[in-house]
Every structure is written in structure tokens, then in C-alpha cells.
């Protein structure tokens, strides 16, 4: 069963358009959505949550086709968005008390593990916490009711490297249960590379690529050749190209090159976005 599915989603916002997005994530997997600012990552996630209605197409979330105003579905989802939306004058423990009255499956112990257990002062008002600690509280809110699906929008961006690493470990731990899935959007591609099973590239509202991370990394290599040598590669084997004063950097299909460096997801995204812009 798929944890989520976008089917031909289109959404217009003034001059911006999220165009014919089709994507799916099997249960038990982590999907990373990569894209520059304004690529449509947040819009795609809002559509998934039913906050924004698509102009065309439909989404399915944990088998439910209508996520908007679906209370039972929300019991099974944990979200962290860029705007946390938590009252700044409430203490962290009071936020836990509010959630206790919201979720049937709220677990105080889990909330404390992700707050107190990560050195967040429970007696401090949320508004007085550092950016990183605020994010930890948001993550605790998302985790505290034992969700089946986590949706994180730029959740790692406010965290220091150690806290980011801990979060990614928590996500990997979360998906050990094969019914649990995660969608993670970020422009910090290294984070996604570490945790995700599937990668989707969004660029200016278009889905450029959606593939298993390991397949992507196996399929392509990065090579550095002279400008003349670069011309000898067939265009259909070239994934991306960057001309520098010292030669040409190419990302090509593994079978087209005798040798090459392993390619990173960041390289793949940057080269692909440049190719698209060109």
C-alpha cells in the first residue's frame, strides 16, 4: 500500500504553477522532496494535507482520498511546517497539556522524550526558546500521538548539525516499523541524502525526477573532462553539464563512462536544475 499518492496535481498561484505532479511513496519509506525556494515544496505538502485544494488531480493519504477536514486521518499524521503555529506565551509543558486534549492517542512520555530528553526547558514559554529548541518542540508535537505518517517541511533548517543528525536518526528509527512513512522537504540536500529512500526533485513547480535514492546513485557518475572530450559524449547519456575554466564537469550514465566519482544527490539536483534553466 502507498502511504501517499499525488495523481496529476495542478495548482495555479498567480504566476506560479505546480504542474501535473504525480508521485507516490510506499509505506515504510522516507521521501525527500528537494527544491530551491519557491519550487513548490510547501504547496505540494499543503495539498497533501488538504490545506490547499488542487485545481486538478487528486491526492490519497494513508488510503484516504479526502484529507481536508478529515479528523480521523489527522490522528494518524504528524506535521512540522515552517510556521510552527504554537502560542508563544504557553510553556512547553502547557503545549503538551493542550495536545493531550486534542489527540486520543497522545503519549506524554513521547512528548517528554522529544523535549525534556533533548534539553528543552519544559517550564519556559515557547516564544522564549531558541530557534532550534522551538523546532524540537514542533517535532515533539508531531511525534507525540504515535502517527503513521510524518510530514516535515524544512524541519531541519533551524537545527544545529548535531540536532539535525539526531532528528534524522529518529526518523530512521521511526520507519523501522514498516507501516510508518515520512515525507521530508528541505533544501539541505545532505540531510535528505542521509535519511531518504526516495528522492523527488521539484524545480519551478515541475517534478523533474522521482526515483529511489540508491538507483539514482548507481545510475550516474560524475566525471571531469576537457571541453573537447565532453563533446564526444552522446547527449542522451548526459544528465547534466557544467563548463568551468578548467574543463567540463559532466554527470553521465554509469555505462557511458569507464570511471568516475560517485555522484551526490546535491550534484544531481544542481546539474538537473541548470539543464532545465538552460
Amino acid at each position: 500500500m502507498n502511504a501517499l499518492e499525488y495523481r496529476h496535481i495542478t495548482k495555479h498561484y498567480g504566476s506560479f504553477c505546480l504542474e501535473d505532479l504525480s508521485l507516490q511513496l510506499p509505506q515504510g519509506m522516507i521521501l525527500g522532496i528537494v527544491g530551491e525556494n519557491g519550487a513548490g515544496k510547501t504547496t505540494a505538502l499543503k495539498i497533501l494535507l488538504g490545506r490547499v485544494l488542487p485545481d486538478e488531480g487528486e491526492v490519497s493519504l494513508l488510503g484516504e482520498s479526502n484529507p481536508r477536514d478529515n479528523k480521523l486521518l489527522r490522528e494518524r499524521i504528524g506535521t512540522v511546517m515552517e510556521e510552527a503555529g504554537l502560542p508563544p506565551i504557553l510553556k512547553v509543558k502547557e503545549i503538551g497539556n493542550v495536545l493531550k486534549r486534542m489527540y486520543q492517542t497522545y503519549d506524554e512520555e513521547v512528548f517528554r522524550r522529544f523535549t525534556e530528553g533533548k534539553h528543552v526547558d519544559m517550564d519556559r514559554p515557547y516564544g522564549e526558546l531558541s530557534k532550534g529548541n522551538k523546532m524540537k518542540v514542533s517535532i515533539a508535537c508531531a511525534m507525540s500521538h504515535h502517527p503513521d505518517l510524518l510530514i516535515f517541511d524544512e524541519a531541519t533548517s533551524g537545527l544545529d548539525p548535531l540536532a539535525r543528525d539526531e532528528l534524522l536518526d529518529d526518523l530512521l528509527d521511526f520507519t523501522r516499523d514498516e507501516t510508518h512513512s515520512v515525507v521530508l522537504s528541505s533544501h539541505i540536500v545532505s540531510d535528505l541524502e542521509k535519511a531518504c529512500d526516495y528522492i523527488a526533485f521539484l524545480h519551478e513547480g515541475k517534478l523533474l525526477l522521482a526515483e529511489e535514492k540508491d538507483v539514482l546513485k548507481e545510475q550516474y557518475v560524475r566525471i571531469h573532462v576537457s571541453n573537447e572530450a565532453a563533446e564526444s559524449y552522446k547527449s542522451d547519456s548526459i544528465f547534466g553539464k557544467r563548463i568551468t575554466p578548467y574543463g567540463t564537469d559532466l554527470i553521465v550514465r554509469r555505462e557511458a563512462a569507464d570511471e568516475g566519482e560517485p555522484v551526490s544527490i546535491e550534484d544531481l539536483f544542481i546539474f538537473m536544475a541548470r539543464k532545465e534553466n538552460a
Binding site: L49, R51, I77, G78, G85, M102, A142
Partner: peptide, 8 residues
């Protein structure tokens, strides 16, 4: 935005 993530 937070309310829309709650079972409400």
C-alpha cells in the same frame, strides 16, 4: 496552520 494539522 497548526490547527489544520490537529484532529479538529
Amino acid at each position: 496552520t497548526f490547527v489544520d494539522s490537529l484532529p479538529v
